[in-house]
């Protein structure tokens, strides 16, 4: 298994505060890696650095051996990395179908003029986007919601929608920022099912999550952050027994 994503000594300082301090790990092909840690441990900052939303103070991120830190956000999708957001970034005034069709943008060449003159390529792009979106939405049992306004959906469905949008163009690495947050048990299980199905098909995942049961069930490897520093890395079994992790979660006294 080659390393799809390699994170080397990533550090982020905000003024005098070090939010992430010298964190290194990797995600292999077809692997699910979870990042966990108490609130304020720097998980989202780490996530944002990997996906180029903020630039690291130090360190670098490699994707398939090529440096990606410092690149434009939209470049990453073209390389094969997609992500979701903790606070959802769906297009609430667009329909479910349109939202997921937007997820195919990477493979769409239509520009203002080809659209205006309605060149033959536009029809091809539209049909491709529609088919891809329809397929994913059917797989996720949302095909009865195609023309619903995304903003009108329940939170759980919006979460599913953002996930569908992130996977529709079949990216190699899918980064999920708290994919289960706010979901009930049934919804959580369904989501976990989608993730392991995609893993079977060779996709890799990097995700931040708080629901321990899900993490232990899904993750191949877990990276634990505390106060911006990586305090442990290992399989779910190893992490559950790790004293540093237990103390970070429960406090020193508990040991």
């Amino acid at each position: 298994m080659g390393n799809l994503l390699q994170v080397n000594g990533l550090t982020k300082k905000f003024g005098g505060v070090t939010a992430v301090n010298d964190v290194s790990f990797h995600v292999g092909e077809g692997e699910i890696v979870a990042v966990i840690g108490p609130n304020g441990a720097g998980k989202t900052t780490l996530f944002n650095m990997i996906s180029s939303y903020i630039q690291p103070t130090d360190g670098e991120v490699l994707f398939k051996g090529k440096k990606i830190s410092g690149r434009k956000i939209f470049d990453l999708a073209h390389l094969g990395i997609s992500r979701t957001f903790q606070n959802l970034q769906i297009f609430s005034n667009m329909t479910v179908l349109e939202n997921v069709m937007m997820g195919t943008s990477v493979n769409i060449k239509t520009n203002v003029f080809s659209a205006g003159f309605r060149l033959p390529t536009v029809k091809r792009d539209e049909e491709y986007a529609y088919k891809a979106a329809y397929e994913v939405l059917t797989m996720m049992e949302m095909s009865d919601l195609l023309h619903e306004q995304a903003g009108q959906l329940s939170y759980g469905l919006q979460k599913k929608l953002e996930f569908a949008r992130a996977i529709v163009y079949k990216p190699q690495l899918i980064m999920l920022d708290e994919p289960m947050a706010g979901l009930n048990d049934a919804e959580t299980n369904t989501m976990a099912g989608y993730i392991s199905d995609l893993k079977e098909k060779g996709h890799s995942f990097l995700f931040v999550e708080h629901k321990m049961a899900t993490i232990m069930q899904l993750a191949d490897r877990i990276v634990v952050l505390d106060f911006g520093t990586k305090i442990a890395e290992g399989t779910p079994d190893e992490i559950q027994k790790n004293e540093k992790v237990i103390s970070a979660y429960l406090g020193e006294e508990a040991i």
Binding site: F85, M102, V106, A115, V122, E126, Y169
Partner: peptide
């Protein structure tokens, strides 16, 4: 023609969430 194509959707998605649109490779 523009509005009823992927470009129209991109314009509206920019209106809704610029960061979300950018993330999708636009």
């Amino acid at each position: 023609n523009i509005i009823r194509s992927s470009v129209g959707r991109i314009l509206r998605s920019i209106h809704d969430s610029e960061i979300g649109t950018e993330t999708l490779g636009v």
